[in-house]
C-alpha cells in the first residue's frame, strides 16, 4: 500500500491523470484504466482524477485542458518502460523531464505501474485466487508477456517480478517468465515447467486479443480460429483448470484488470519525482 503520509495533503489539491494506450478496435482495452480511475475518485484522495489515451478520447494533448488543479500527478497505466513511456507520452504531454513547470502548473511524471515492485502482491494474490487449494509447492507460476526484439525493456518488468516472487518466500515450485514473440516462448510452456499444476498469468494492462485469443492458442487451450474466443471474451478464463499435456493448467485474465491496480497507481504517486529546482516557465 502507498504510505498515506507521503504528500497526501498535496494530493487533495492536485489532479491525478492516468494515461492508457486504449484501442480503436477493442472496447475492453481502456476498461481497467477507467475502473481504476473510478475507484480512486471514490476514495476522494485527489481534487480530480482524469484518464487520457493514445488511441481513444480524451487524447494526451487535451487532457491538461480538462483539469483545474495547479499540481498534476501523471501515472502511465503501462506495463513496462519503453517507447511509450520514454518517447510518446513525454512528447504528447510536452513534458520537460520528471517535473515540468508550464503555464503556472507543476506536472510530476511518475513511473509506469508495471515496473513498481508492488505488482508482486497482485501476482501472488492472482495465483492464489485462480488455483484455490493447490499447494504453491505444486505450482509452476508462469508470467507471460508480449516480448519483442525491438525493445529489451519490454521483458525487464517481468524478469524483475519473477525474481521478486522467487525471493518472496511464497513457496512456488518454480516461477518462470515466457513470451509470445521471443524466447522462452509461451508455446513451450510444458517444457519450461515441471510442476503438476501450471498457473499462467498474462502481464498485460488489459484483456484483449492477446489474452482472449493469442495466448490461449499458444497454450493449446483452443484451436486457432480467429475471432472464436474474442466472441466469448472472458469465457476462456472460466474453464479452469484445463487438463493438457499431462498437467493441470490454470489461465488468468490480464493482471492489469485486478482491482488492486488502483493501489499500484497510488504507489507510483507516492514515489513521484520531487520538485526540481528549475524556475517556473
Amino acid at each position: 500500500m502507498a504510505d498515506s503520509s507521503v504528500s497526501s495533503s498535496t494530493w487533495r489539491d492536485a489532479a491525478l491523470v492516468i494515461l492508457g494506450h486504449g484501442s480503436t478496435q477493442n472496447p475492453d482495452s481502456s476498461t481497467p484504466t477507467w475502473q481504476h480511475a473510478d475507484e480512486l475518485r471514490r476514495r476522494g484522495l485527489f481534487r480530480e482524477v482524469q484518464c487520457a489515451f493514445w488511441k481513444e478520447e480524451p487524447g494526451f494533448r487535451e487532457v491538461m485542458h480538462m483539469i483545474d488543479s495547479d499540481h498534476v500527478f501523471v501515472v502511465p497505466n503501462f506495463i513496462s518502460e519503453g517507447y511509450f513511456t520514454r518517447d510518446v507520452l513525454p512528447r504528447e504531454l510536452e513534458l520537460q523531464g520528471p517535473v515540468t513547470h508550464a503555464g503556472g502548473r507543476t506536472i510530476r511524471y511518475c513511473d509506469p505501474v508495471g515496473i513498481h515492485p508492488s505488482m508482486t502482491r497482485l501476482l501472488l494474490k492472482r495465483a492464489a485466487e485462480i488455483a484455490p487449494g493447490v499447494p504453491p509447492s505444486e505450482i509452476s507460476l508462469v508470467i507471460v508477456g508480449h516480448g519483442t526484439s525491438l525493445n529489451e525493456n519490454s521483458t525487464a518488468a517481468i524478469k524483475s517480478q519473477v525474481e521478486l516472487i522467487r525471493a518472496s518466500g511464497a513457496g512456488f515450485g518454480e516461477v518462470v517468465d515466457a513470451y509470445m514473440e521471443e524466447e522462452p516462448l509461451i508455446a513451450r510452456w510444458d517444457e519450461l515447467t515441471t510442476a503438476p499444476n501450471v498457473v499462467v498469468v498474462p502481464f498485460f494492462i488489459a484483456d484483449g486479443l492477446h489474452s482472449y485469443e493469442d495466448i490461449p492458442v499458444l497454450l493449446g487451450l483452443t484451436e486457432n480460429s480467429p475471432g472464436a474466443i474474442s466472441a466469448n471474451q472472458g469465457e476462456v478464463f472460466r474453464r479452469n483448470p484445463y487438463a493438457l499435456r499431462g498437467r493441470q493448467l490454470f489461465y488468468s485474465a490480464a493482471i492489469g484488470t485486478d482491482e488492486l491496480m488502483a493501489d499500484v497507481i497510488m504507489d507510483q504517486v507516492a514515489a513521484a519525482p520531487q520538485e526540481s529546482t528549475s524556475p517556473a516557465a
Binding site: 487532457v63 485542458h65 480538462m66 510518446v88 512528447r91
Partner: peptide, 28 residues
Amino acid sequence: PAALGNWVAFTQGRATPSPIRETFARQT
C-alpha cells in the same frame, strides 16, 4: 471528452491548435 476544457482553453487563448502537418511531422 475534453470538449468543455478545450472550448474554455481555446476561447481564453490558452490552447494552441497543432497544424496538421506538424502533428504528422512529430510522429515516430
